[in-house]
Nucleic acid binder design. Structure first.
Lengths: 338, 338
DNA sequence: GAAAGTCGTTACAGCGTTGTAAACCGGGCC
DNA sequence: GGCCCGGTTTACAACGCTGTAACGACTTTC
């Protein structure tokens, strides 16, 4: 059986509380006592029972990160950064996969893990404003990604999707492209990210005086490679685009695959632009131009916001906008392509 | 403040224990009482305090999954499967990233989270036999990936790396390749996986009567795309190989990138074979031939072994060997390449 | 009609920890 | 010598939950 405070106390010949004080680094313990207790701790290889400590303190040192899917490289990379940032604060991260399923997402905000976790970092996909305002659980929560609803009373970390999408589209137009497609539109009312990126795309077209041809907008219900490959296939034909702005890198990699396997040259015939800057894109051939959203900074900001809440901050919801950067690579290079 | 059993009990006019019995679905509660209690639970939106329950029961319902790095698509995909399998048993998964750092790995086996978790699924990289045999923590643990040491007293799930590597290499030889390189060798004494895959590679060469040219063995300290790209560059030159067996898909994607950007045609000039069957490989151009290790089955087996241990199984360590499958794609197609 | 079940419910203790408040001890001061 | 004061240590209760054992009421059995 594992050693308890009681066992250590008996061995060191002190009270339980003194051991507790040593373990927690409280002052007012004489050097001699401390040494004796520490020896006993080592001999019994004592380790605090976290469940008991949590019960007593109301804190668990665990935060949950809820994402749609770790399979998705963007979320996998984000998770890495979140885990590192949490680690630096001595927290442990528990990962929940929602699969973008509204039911599962509601369970998560509803507090399915509430007594186990001190806080929640949540990247929702299908959540509606109603789900948030009616929230009964009071575990501090920070939202990642798109803002849900107008004025949800929660801290939020995101990027300026409209500006980023506009920059990405402009980049293609500046390279002389005239039939620029958008790939990844979604009809679901909760698809805020898709809507914002589409908006930026349209703004860019308008700014360049390009017509907004509806046949150049390809829908993709899920932002996976497969969806990108299929949507790209639908865009090809007599009036094929000469550039595609894909709403994330997975879509772009799928699109790239379709283009290359059908004999299109990238970037000569069709330029491709992604979004997210996942590792795969850097090693694709041609390497993928993309928008880099600063994942490390997103993770760090989110963890930091949560830390403030856990420390008791009660001011109104805060909005953090992390800067993004355009990262052109071979799929839309500088230089001329007449 | 959040409702407790006591609050529910008062509201329903019954004892605390009766509420507990309802919550836990115990029999011997009359329908009328149960209904009353359930109503009270709903009204107060009561949710059990897991810390208290854990303290009482000694179980937390949380298992840890320790992997080197979620960035790595193989581990990200594995984690997805583990989380799903754990979810089906009502467990929550907490992810630890070790970065393959021996110190961190030792902390994990040493039980850094021990009171928080019921069990541990561990995919070690740098762990030695000594670390395992001297283990003081008694949290049930299942090892994933390569066997550590000869007879570590722990359940283990893995694949037959030698056979898989042999099959992969033979596949290249059968397509007429004669200068087959191996990419991903490692010198570290703990690099068991690399050693086994190299062994399979050598067996295949011997079986085909091909000479084992040491200049065809490329080392890669870390199995990332970058490492693969660099190692591939080192292999090229006057005596370039006509096929490369990469010890994982990330290496292969890096190698592919180097080959294509230097003007080599894949598979015509150089065939490429990977290992792991990660999603990226399917969408590369050309798509990547690989060995599919049955990640879902690995995850399910591991979780199932752990479940047995948690249920009290005390028989000797079990060894599960999950079947693998060769998945040829465009980078080493069927058909002739003289 | 009394003894022996059966079912539904309850009181109590204790899981391992920590905050509170009080006790203890030795030294310096009047 | 007695008193006060500071640092050090302790006893106790409580965090919310569940297993155990026991209780009361009601039914069955001979």
């Amino acid at each position: 059986m594992r050693a308890r405070l009681k066992d250590v106390a008996e061995r060191a010949g002190v009270s339980i509380k003194t051991v507790s004080n040593v373990v927690n680094g409280h002052p007012h313990v004489s050097a001699a006592t401390r040494a004796r207790v520490e020896a006993a701790i080592a001999e019994l290889s004592y380790r605090p029972n976290l469940s008991a400590r949590n019960l007593r303190s109301g804190r668990s040192g665990v935060v949950a990160l809820a994402v749609p899917d770790l399979d998705n490289p963007y979320f996998a990379e984000l998770a890495t950064h979140v885990i590192s940032a949490a680690d630096q604060r001595g927290w442990t991260v528990l990962v929940d996969q929602t699969q973008g399923d509204p039911g599962k997402e509601r369970l998560v905000v509803g507090g399915i893990r509430s007594h186990l976790i001190d806080g929640l970092l949540f990247s929702p996909l299908a959540l509606t404003h109603r789900d948030l305002t009616g929230r009964e659980d009071h575990t501090p929560m920070v939202l990642l990604g798109e803002r849900v609803g107008r004025r949800a009373p929660y801290d939020h970390v995101g990027i300026d999707n409209v500006a980023a999408a506009r920059a990405a589209t402009l980049h293609l137009a500046e390279r002389g492209r005239r039939r620029i497609a958008a790939l990844g539109a979604q009809r679901a009312p909760s698809a805020a990210t898709a809507r914002l990126r589409l908006k930026g795309y349209r703004q860019a077209l308008a700014a360049c005086g390009l017509a907004a041809d509806p046949s150049l907008i390809a829908h993709a219900p899920a932002w996976h490679r497969t969806g990108g490959a299929e949507a790209m296939a639908a865009l090809l034909g007599p009036d094929a685009p000469d550039a595609v702005f894909c709403f994330n890198d997975a879509l772009a990699l799928g699109a790239l695959r379709t283009l290359l396997s059908r004999g299109y040259r990238v970037p000569e015939d069709v330029m491709v632009m992604g979004f997210d800057d996942i590792e795969d894109g850097r090693f694709a051939t041609p390497s993928l131009s993309t928008v880099s959203p600063g994942k490390a900074l997103i993770a760090e900001s989110a963890v930091s916001l949560l830390a403030d809440r856990l420390a008791g901050a009660t001011d109104g919801p805060r909005e953090v906008r992390v800067p993004h950067r355009l990262t052109p690579r071979e799929s839309s290079p500088y230089g001329e392509f007449p």
